[in-house]
Design a protein around this nucleic acid. Structure first.
Lengths: 356, 356
DNA sequence: TCGATGGCCGTAAACGTTTACGGGTATCGC
DNA sequence: GCGATACCCGTAAACGTTTACGGCCATCGA
């Protein structure tokens, strides 16, 4: 009876069970499980025999079964919110990042799972849904808002996570953020040293956290150079291509128009080039232009855009390691949560120059 | 005893069980499950009462439990192989596609899960690993090779999938592919009508399936225009930026150099523009250039690149619907597997022109 | 009135793992 | 020779759902 039942299951499903594997080996499923999970209480000889048999029969443990019992999924979730789709679509930022993340997680036998919010689904309900379904062990959060409800949500349930980007939340959690302070300092120094006194700034929307940092450092740099702050020179927008074009047009239509543009968006410089040329102005000759990152779109610009670069693969690796340290049972404790700024290096092109 | 045990579990875990929810309602867990899954054998009044209680307590079923029992995960996997990373990194193709996919799946209460192969992990072993772990119910395959082992693997185990791209495999399966036939016909007509007789072609690597189609149609078009085929004008490469630059340089160094370049890669035109200008040649004036797709990088080019466009969101939607029709229990049968070409429309810029 | 039918609901057995617990040897120290 | 101690291994109970099955009650037709 019992034997019949087991053969039936194996025959029907055609899948290698841990039970089936144990039967082949003449062992109990408990021993097989212990052997495959590198736990103690298994003799080296048996362990090897089990591992070899598993490889031979192509046995890979069912994830639902092990998750249900152990509570661990062996996966980490990356939350991709496509709220501002234009900003993301033009953005190869994440693709390169994902690879680094997966590489970092692979070191600990973990897998990365990228999840997308459903149409019209709020970021928090999306997170809540997947958290209570138990899809992943930990989270990498991107696109952090100035006041991001996901952070307290995860903190209160002490679910491991690391954020790509700071917030205004005054609680202790792990994050890595791009060094916008350094970027702004370098860019503003370059421009003020060259004699620019009217510098147009395109910053991300005010809801995004780094927007505040950018504007703050912009004003600091002006003060250091004894230049009065003119709020009309600062624009907040989606920092995508079309917005870059519109904003550059507006700034250049001012009576006392800027001599330099600082565009803190991935594809904004593309639009800015277009807008300038429509006005008969050439970037790098009539107007100085500095962008944020040397992404493929900006690399296509001519003259070469002066902007900043970073190693996205390394950043992904750092995020992965920061998160892994917080997962239960990985190390003893992992120490304090990582909080770090990720430096970006200035790449001089031709676009920051002007002829006087 | 029993009551104590249950309270302990709920107190410790702090999570709302189906058992806990049933206790609150004074119902059995079977009835609760049936009510939430919209099955029969539940009175309308009870059903409503259960649904309301679930919403009130924020109960969301644990995925591992339901998957383990039912065999369904409610998710669809998108396989992202970063083998040719340069081709992908510069490629916002997928990001836009993913959104359409998720939207299509949301219609059926399914979720998209993007998975990355580990470093050095073969595409097939990656797939085999996740299939036997049972991570998803169906697959969307991209980057199909000319002879792709993943196709027979999934077919033999009759696991639902749809491929973005054809292969040379003569078996019946669902796929949607870009209409490279149409693209090549339109592009070649444009060039030959303009009098070009030496047209340089940059095609994807020979292992990629569409590479064959591209070259085939290239020769067809030449034959139609009574132009002899010169194999020296055809290059196979990664079709990324640096490769586009190298290939364009090579082609332009020929004694009888081409008067037009046809670049069937996402970012190859960016490199080509750069190479041409280094030789003192201006795209759209001295050499005609036609690209594949109007991605952000190509949109940054000046003069405007003549290339093709498609709605990636719609494509994702179509893929999702094609796959959903194959999932068990969705419809009666779903009919024959969808096999379709996805049209691309020509966008005329300035780059295809030449002065004679 | 009675058998049959159908609507609701509870019971319990799965699904495939992990893991606490206990038992059986062999080894070791005295 | 004997108790104590490792070292292995098997047993069985979880984990949270779904679902086949059976039972109860009300309704209905004759």
């Amino acid at each position: 009876m019992e034997g019949l039942c087991e053969t039936r299951r194996a025959a029907i499903k055609g899948r290698m069970d841990i039970r089936e594997l144990a039967r082949h080996l003449g062992l109990s499923i408990g021993t097989v499980s212990r052997a495959l999970n590198d736990r103690k209480d298994v003799s080296p000889a048996t362990r090897q025999r089990v591992v070899e048999a598993a490889a031979k029969h192509g046995y890979i443990p069912n994830q639902s079964g092990r998750t249900l019992r152990s509570g661990r999924t062996g996966t980490v979730g990356f939350m991709l919110t496509l709220e501002h789709d234009s900003a993301i679509h033009g953005d190869p930022f994440f693709m390169a990042l994902l690879e680094g993340l997966q590489n970092g997680l692979s070191e600990h036998d973990l897998d990365l799972v990228v999840l997308l919010a459903r149409k019209g689904e709020d970021a928090l309900t999306f997170l809540r849904r997947h958290v209570s379904r138990g899809t992943v062990d930990g989270w990498v959060l991107s696109g952090t808002q100035h006041d991001d409800p996901r952070i307290p949500f995860l903190l209160d349930r002490n679910i491991p996570f690391i954020a790509l980007g700071r917030t205004a939340i005054a609680r202790d959690y792990a994050w890595i953020d791009l060094d916008f302070e350094g970027v702004m300092a370098d860019a503003m120094t370059l421009l003020t040293k060259a004699g620019h006194r009217r510098i147009g700034l395109v910053a991300p929307p005010a809801t995004i956290n780094n927007s505040h940092i950018v504007v703050e450092r912009y004003r600091d740099a002006l003060a250091r150079a004894d230049i009065p702050f003119d709020p009309a020179l600062v624009h907040h927008g989606e920092t995508d291509e079309s917005d870059g074009e519109a904003t550059a047009s507006e700034l250049m239509a001012m009576p006392d128009r800027p001599t330099a543009l600082l565009l803190m968006g991935e594809t904004a410089p593309v639009g800015a080039y277009r807008a300038l040329r429509r006005l008969g102005l050439e970037p790098g000759r009539d107007v100085a232009v500095i962008g944020l990152r040397d992404n493929p779109a900006c690399r296509a610009l001519s003259p070469d855009l002066t902007c900043f670069s970073l190693d996205l693969g390394d950043l992904g690796l750092a995020l992965a390691r920061g998160l892994v340290a917080m997962l239960p049972g990985q190390t003893e404790d992992g120490g304090p949560a990582v909080q770090a700024l990720w430096g970006m290096t200035l790449r001089l092109g031709q676009s920051h120059k002007v002829e006087r």
